[in-house]
């Protein structure tokens, strides 16, 4: 028993002849936020999808809550929530109907769903639009609805693909606050992002992925130490590590 909430061991994923993820091993502890960063096509979304069970690894094992995602997916998914980078929702539903649908899927009573929704809707100022059809929502409002859906069943682990893309500044702050509170209360977050400032604010541990391989991993201080740049921000460190220093 490792005690890790997420444990990837020698995970690889191939799409035909393309190797999207190569021999990836990483772990996330309970109460920790782990940010995976890297250039486009590095394999971040593929990794996130494997962690949520949407994709099966070609080789290697993935354990969440010390259970194998391939053999015990239902038990894991009860305490896991996923926020995708493309906030697609059935366009024929209203936002409220969609959130009720999610509540039903996670076995919440309608009363619970209603009470939890009231808090989140007011937090994101969505009360005015939540009864409109989803097809008419802006990108940001779709993203907010999907974030609310993730928090609805009070998960223990949040897996996020780009947490703040498409959100206005106010909603970005609300989301970051929500995530920090979530971690403070014992939750864990595994996210991938291009917004390095968000990774720097949220993550205790950062992994840099390039061409499917984990090329660097550690806390911000670790990365600064390795790069011998004591005051560098994550963006500077990232560009240095990936060999794209301006």
């Amino acid at each position: 028993m490792s005690g890790n909430l997420i444990e990837l061991q020698n995970v690889s994923k191939n799409f035909g002849s393309t190797q999207a993820v190569v021999d990836l091993s990483l772990s996330v502890k309970a109460g920790e936020t782990y940010a995976l960063i890297g250039p486009n096509g590095a394999g971040k979304t593929t990794t996130v999808k494997m962690v949520t069970g949407l994709l099966a690894p070609t080789s290697g094992t993935i354990e969440i809550f010390q259970k194998n995602i391939e053999t015990e997916p239902v038990a894991i998914k009860k305490d896991l929530a996923y926020i995708p980078d493309d906030p697609f929702v059935y366009d024929y539903l209203t936002g409220r109907e969609f959130l009720e649908f999610v509540g039903d899927c996670y076995g919440l009573s309608r009363k619970e769903t209603k009470e939890r929704l009231a808090k989140f809707l007011s937090l994101y100022n969505l009360e005015a639009v939540v009864d409109g059809r989803f097809a008419d929502y802006s990108r940001g409002n779709k993203q907010k609805t999907v974030i609310i859906a993730a928090f609805l069943h009070q998960p223990k682990l949040l897996v996020i693909d780009e947490p703040v893309v498409g959100l206005d500044v106010q909603s970005q702050n609300v989301t970051l606050r929500l995530l920090k509170d979530f971690v403070k209360k014992g939750g864990s977050v595994f996210l991938c992002t291009h917004t390095l400032s968000v990774a720097q604010i949220l993550a205790e541990k950062i992994g840099i992925l390039r061409e499917g391989r984990l090329i660097e991993e550690g806390t911000l201080e670790n990365l600064r130490g390795k790069a011998k740049k004591a005051n560098a921000n994550l963006e500077e460190l990232y560009l240095g590590i990936t060999g794209n220093t301006p």
Binding site: D91, Y92, L93, E100, D104, S109, R133
Partner: peptide, 30 residues
């Protein structure tokens, strides 16, 4: 793309709010 807010999941009162019933209602609404 249109929608009829009068025909929503809440309009299927006989179905318990479970994952299965939610998925079924979703098919009907589709």
């Amino acid at each position: 793309k249109s929608i009829a807010p009068t025909i929503g999941p809440s309009r299927f009162p006989l179905l318990k709010p479970t994952a299965t019933s939610a998925l079924f209602v979703n098919e009907v609404l589709m």
